[in-house]
Design a protein around this nucleic acid. Sequence first.
RNA 1: UCCUCAGUAGCUCAGUUGGUUAGAGCAUCUGACUGUUAAUCAGAGGGUCCCUGGUUCAAGUCCAGGCUGGGGAGCCA
Length: 509
Amino acid sequence: MKQNWTYLAQLAANEGKEITLKGWVQNRRDSKGIVFIILRDGTGFAQCVVLEETVGEAMFDEAKRLSLETSVELTGTIRKDEKQLGGFEVQVSSLKVITPAEEYPIGKKEHGVDFLMDRRHLWLRSKRQWAIMRIRNEIIFAIHNFFQQNGFVQMDAPIFTGNACEGTSTLFETEFFEDTAYLSQSGQLYGEAMAMAMGKIYTFGPTFRAEKSKTRRHLSEFWMIEPEMAFYDLDMTMDLIEEFIRFVVTAVLKNCKDELAVLERDVTKLETVIKPFPRIAYKDAVQMIRGEKDVNGMNSIKTLEGDLAIVKNKIEEIKTDITSREEKIKSGALKKGEIAFNEQKIQQQKAALRELEEEERNIPQWLESAKNFVPGDDFGGSDETVLTRLFNTPIMVYNWPKAIKAFYMKEADDDKGYVRGVDILAPEGYGEIVGGGQRETDMQVLVDAIHHHQLPMEAFEWYLDLRRYGSVQHSGFGLGLERIICWVCKLPHVREAIPFPRMMGRLLP
RNA sequence: UCCUCAGUAGCUCAGUUGGUUAGAGCAUCUGACUGUUAAUCAGAGGGUCCCUGGUUCAAGUCCAGGCUGGGGAGCCA
């Protein structure tokens, strides 16, 4: 392939040289005789400086009138400049418009979620989305790397499935010739079959859930990775999960420094993954949530009460700040610029206030829910937050009550009524990112479980074959890709973790 | 399904107890400025106040119903 231009990612390697770049005008500022173009080409961003005395009047006028998102080709010399994101800027010697852009709908100021979601195809061009999508790519690559390096075989599970494996309420129904088919909500059972053929496998594919959930953690279509390992027990699986998460996060920390900087992610929070992940039995976790058991001198109830006090203080501080700014504006002693500055601050403070007030309403409910947690119940979103608040690494909660977990989970030999499942909970309120465990191997126990869960036996005949022909101990886990992206990037909502989110009321673009 | 908040200019938002011609910043256009980082400064244009009905001399503002969206619960990765 003959390529006659350079990518912005290669600026450092070409310092001092004259190169040609192709890209889009992300932003433009001008002053007399000088125009600054922020060029984006997908690999990075760079400020390109156009001087009238260098390029001449005609080309300068064209540069001055460039509309946002116009595609351009320009030639210039690379110069070091510590102030820039990549550390370099380009002194432009000539510039050519490829195609001018109409007035670009996404402005430089803040926008509402609905407006941006309607323009997701353009929103993806913005710096923040660029950073997220690059980190998504890095995570996907790291996941494949990890499994490939460890002898796993990638497999694709079917997306059309003929049976609803864990109840029909959360499945999308569709036509499959004369039959009804459901869109896959998990490839696990197929993964188990493949593990009996290949030893260690992992699936990597889309998953569909028809839950009518409207929260920051849910998508109708998301990507899931489901490894399955023959001969593994729960402890080996927990070792593997820990190593896996450490590998993925470390890869992002190493290869996505610019992206994390764009997101203003506090990387020290991610660096803690090098520490061992605490492994907590469900029974102990319940005591921690209820405040009956301290963790490293921290008590869940007291910590939460402390958090509430902090939130209340912050609310008061912000209210005082807003009032004093409003009074300053009313007093008439400020210049126009100062008024604009204060009004902008007030808007920011009000947005912060809305979030804090939401927390102020939530925390007392979390406290109630934590104090009154009934042993045997599944964790709610707030219980996960309460528990993970006591740690600064991901934690693993294992041995869950049998009643709340899927039929294929293996009961613990030394802990009747509890199954060898594990949930990995991410810190900073992100909750469950991985769920897995050891599978039941005994034919009869499995048949009884299928009856007990009132599932259609005929749909599981093929699955029971896996126990008929050389059944072995095996385990696996499932990882929600967008959830881990969310945590690594510290996103407020999963919808930013996938290029084109599909969720209730959102099918376009 | 339930709880809760919101819908005003292209965008983000103000709009006091119901009261004259509905405002600001950004964006757009015109002009100024040779180092800007969401540049700044001066000026101009830009409105179906989500929809329907009601109360009233008078509704962006109050009431009822609906639509759309945000956040949360349940459910889940």
